[in-house]
């Protein structure tokens, strides 16, 4: 009943372009600042993305959006806080592929269920990864790399920004799908990993496009393929992993907005509309592109389906590769 009244109210509000007809609860939303929980420390890609989107959401919602960093345990600290908040739309979580699709399989105990404890709002965007190698390796394509790895089993290394990170899991996916024996080497972040890749200590890495492209342009790294389903507009000459002969190989870092489960549907819809509007602002889109994010802006239903499919895929990779944290 309440939900129906809320929905009707929302429709009217949307029709006459008003935000906030008193009476129904959902109609007055938002009447106070909205807290946007970020699972990573200030300065990381998630944080910068949250500040860009948050600033525009502020304008869209007519309420300030406060970025609240709660880093720790691969995003689990923030996720645990988020699921404990009242489902009223005043506490949101900027989640990513780790929190929603990988951590449930990486960690032994998780005090939340990524599939049922959140109400997906929208998939904000994806950051494609690029398989980069050091030029001195002398390979120019994914096929050549696989051939080299098969000729020298156990000798080539792939770098990552830590156990269980997207770069690590993408490498494991590559190892499994290509059937090669390559060794994982973990670094405390993307920057030291790329340093060692440039100076030829390690041979390959799945790096986010934004980190990799400057080096590819400068000739210090060679890109072999992108991990998205379509080619990247920033690097149109680069084939996808699928084109390079690895069917169904997709490994991106993605960011999406979720609310605690049981947040009223009208509020989720309103947040979805506001976020998509924010993403379509030229300024916002330009800044996100600069960060290497391909803006998506899906419906809540599409996002929910996407989370499920990603969860199944990475759960399988994590189990087969034997990756675990804890």
């Amino acid at each position: 009943m309440l939900a129906r009244r809320g929905l009707a109210g929302f429709a009217i509000a949307a029709a006459i372009g008003l935000r906030g007809v008193p009476d129904a609860r959902a109609d007055t939303y938002p009447s106070k600042p909205v807290r946007l929980l970020v699972a990573f420390p200030p300065g990381g890609p998630s944080d910068v993305l949250a500040r860009i989107v948050g600033q525009q959401l502020n304008a869209e919602l007519g309420q300030s959006v406060i970025v609240d960093n709660r880093p720790g345990a691969g995003g689990n600290v923030a996720a645990e806080i988020a699921v404990k908040q009242a489902p009223d739309g005043y506490a949101l979580l900027l989640a990513n592929n780790s929190i929603l699709a990988a951590n449930a399989f990486l960690y032994k105990r998780l005090s939340f269920d990524p599939l049922t404890d959140f109400a997906p709002v929208t998939l904000i965007g994806r950051q494609p990864n690029i398989l980069v190698v050091s030029p001195s390796l002398g390979v120019g394509s994914v096929a050549q790399l696989i051939a080299l790895a098969k000729a020298r089993p156990g000798q080539l290394n792939f770098a990552s920004s830590g156990n269980g990170t997207a770069a690590h899991l993408a490498g494991e996916l590559f190892r499994l799908r290509a059937g090669i024996d390559i060794v994982h080497v973990a670094y405390p972040g993307v920057a030291p990993a790329l340093t060692d890749l440039i100076s030829d200590q390690v041979q390959m890495m799945f790096a986010t496009s934004v980190a990799a492209i400057p080096f590819m342009k400068g000739g210090t790294l060679r890109g072999l393929a992108v991990t998205t389903a379509q080619r990247s507009s920033a690097m149109p000459d680069l084939p996808t992993m699928m084109e390079a002969g690895l069917p169904d190989f997709e490994a991106t870092t993605w960011h999406g907005l979720v609310a605690p489960a049981r947040t009223p549907a009208p509020i989720v819809t309103q947040l979805n509309t506001a976020t998509i509007d924010a993403l379509h602002q030229p300024d916002v889109a330009r800044r996100l592109t600069g960060l290497g994010v391909d803006v998506v802006g899906s419906t809540p239903e599409e996002f929910a389906t996407y989370i499920k499919s990603e969860s199944i895929k990475w759960g399988d990779v994590i189990k087969r590769a034997g990756v675990h944290i804890g």
Partner: peptide, 22 residues
């Protein structure tokens, strides 16, 4: 360090990619 990483992020947001050709 983290502060420099944040500066890097700030540059990327502005469409400037630090690197050999910057």
């Amino acid at each position: 360090g983290a502060a420099m990483a944040l500066m890097l992020g700030a540059m990327l947001v502005q469409g400037i990619a630090p690197g050999p050709r910057m």
